[in-house]
Amino acid sequence: MIRPARPRKLAKVPFVELAEGRLQGVVSSGSDIERVYVSSVAAGTYAFACSTNNNRPCGGARGGFCNHIRALVTEAVLQYGAARVARYLKVETADGQQDAPSLTQAMAGTRPPQADGTAAAAVFSRFLRHLAYLELAPTNVPLPEMQWFLPARAVA
């Protein structure tokens, strides 16, 4: 597990990951406490998608990055560091500066296409699985689903 580059608050963006060739995550709605958005940006093409947890398209993601995607990039920079996010997404900023606004501006400046959002269900499912671990009582006993390493004696 890689430690976060800097501590971040989980209220706005409770889940962020660099996976499957995308920066993707879950972003809380600013207006409805029961609504979240699943947002993603593809590496290289910067194709983006943003929709609610019940697959309604984000009203702000029409032709450009919405505030949810901007928040996702900001939190990814806090979690992973700007250099790692830029490398993963294949972003080169004009001034060489690597911070969340510079990365977002460089990607948005290319007029990225809007993606179909087919990954939203998988991302939201992983988020819910992560939430389930928070409901477990603290224990030192290993969790069966987390035991995917081979025991040392079994390795030949």
Rank of each mutant, 00 (worst) to 15 (best):
G44W: 03
E145V: 14
L128P: 07
L103Y: 03
E75N: 12
A132I: 10
G117I: 01
G96R: 10
T139Y: 12
P142L: 11
P4E: 08
L10V: 14
Y37T: 08
R87H: 12
V41D: 00
T45Q: 04
A119L: 12
T93D: 00
P138Y: 11
A122N: 12
A83E: 12
Y133W: 15
A154Y: 15
V26R: 12
G117W: 08
K90G: 06
I69P: 10
P7S: 04
R8D: 10
Y46T: 03
V26H: 09
E75V: 15
I2P: 01
P57L: 12
S39G: 06
A86I: 01
G21C: 09
N67C: 09
A11H: 14
H68S: 02
V155R: 14
Y46W: 08
G60I: 00
V27F: 00
P4M: 11
V38Q: 03
G63N: 11
A5M: 02
L18F: 08
N67K: 10
S28Y: 10
Q97R: 14
L150M: 13
L23P: 04
N140Y: 10
F48W: 08
P138V: 10
V85Q: 07
K90Y: 12
A43R: 11
D99I: 01
S28D: 01
R129M: 15
D32P: 06
E20G: 15
Q24Y: 07
V91T: 05
A11L: 04
G60P: 00
P14S: 03
S28I: 00
R111Q: 11
E92A: 07
P4S: 06
L131C: 11
L134I: 02
V27L: 03
M146T: 15
G60A: 05
R153L: 10
Y80C: 07
R70M: 05
Y37A: 06
S125I: 01
L18D: 04
G30R: 14
G59Q: 14
E34M: 09
F124W: 02
Q79T: 13
D32W: 12
R126D: 04
L103A: 13
Q147I: 03
R87Q: 14
T118L: 15
M146N: 06
A152S: 13
R3E: 09
F48N: 00
N140M: 14
Y46D: 00
A120M: 14
V77L: 07
A108W: 02
L134P: 05
R62Y: 09
A106C: 06
G63Q: 07
R56S: 15
G64P: 01
E34I: 11
V73T: 02
N55L: 08
K12S: 12
P112Q: 13
A82E: 00
D32K: 13
S31N: 07
T52D: 10
A83M: 01
T118N: 04
I69V: 09
P57I: 12
R153D: 03
F48V: 02
A122Q: 11
C50A: 03
F149D: 09
R56W: 06
V123P: 13
N140G: 10
G96P: 01
T52H: 03
T110D: 02
L131W: 05
F65N: 01
G63Y: 11
R22Q: 02
S28M: 08
